[in-house]
Simulated scan of single mutants.
Amino acid sequence: MLTVDFDRLGVGPGTKVIDVGAGAGRHSFEAYRRGADVIAFDQDVAELDNVATMFEAMAEAGEAPESARAQAVVGNALELPYEDGTFDVVIASEILEHVPEDDAAIAELVRVLKDGGKLAVTVPRWLPERICWALSDEYHANEGGHVRIYKASELRRKIASRGMKFTHTHHAHSLHSPFWWLKCAVGVEQSDHPAVTTYHRMLVWDMMQRPLLTRVAESALNPVIGKSVALYFDKPAVNVALV
């Protein structure tokens, strides 16, 4: 389940990509399939062990071009261990809402991006997230949980202030918003609640089968209740001096 539009980012053979806050690796795997040289970067060692194992399995199964390279790297998003302008594409999907020092994290995302490169950032959308917070403290008030709710305009200004040019936005995963509202209403840990398990089965069916009905429904609902908002930026080929 991808939140980022890889066609818009132009990811292909030889593209240098870093997926910051890679988690379980969904965006890293897509970049690898497309032939990119990708780094899945996260602080969660266990998650990255699984990502590294999947990279190896993909290579053995021929699911990625032989020329592509993939690596899982453990580290801190506030101190990316790479030189300025290392990557053609930087992805940060569903990470900034977890980071207290989000301005410092944004600065690092921009720093390691090449002039002329592309940045994609996604976060939970304001309205669906606000409903989750209203229904459940447990949803966000936990170790590593969400520390803020962004308005897209606020995040856009934060990133643009670093000299980045905003290019596009879209919403995604509207069918997932009601699922999380259900979980928050019955208790986030109550995964065996009948309403939650029934809706979860529908989501799995949708992701596996991708039927026309749910594709049309999600497309229509994304502008209204899309769970995530994605923002895209270009780094100017010639840096613009900040005032």
Rank of each mutant, 00 (worst) to 15 (best):
F6Q: 10
F55C: 02
E56I: 09
N76F: 03
G62L: 08
V11Q: 12
M54A: 09
V38T: 01
D7G: 10
Y32E: 06
N50C: 03
V38N: 00
R8A: 15
E79H: 14
D49H: 10
A24N: 09
R8I: 05
V45R: 14
A68D: 01
G75L: 11
V74G: 04
V51T: 08
E56R: 15
R34Q: 07
D5P: 09
E60C: 03
F41P: 02
E79F: 12
E30F: 04
S67I: 01
D49K: 14
A68T: 03
E47Y: 10
S67G: 06
L48W: 01
P65A: 02
A70Q: 02
T15S: 15
L80V: 12
L78S: 12
V74Q: 13
E63Q: 13
A77T: 10
G14W: 15
G14N: 15
A40D: 02
A72V: 09
A24I: 05
E66V: 03
G62H: 10
S67N: 01
E63G: 00
G25P: 03
A31D: 01
A46V: 14
L78E: 13
T53Y: 03
G75C: 13
D42K: 10
N76A: 07
T53H: 09
T15Y: 11
F55D: 02
A24C: 05
E56C: 08
A59E: 13
E66L: 04
I18K: 04
D42A: 11
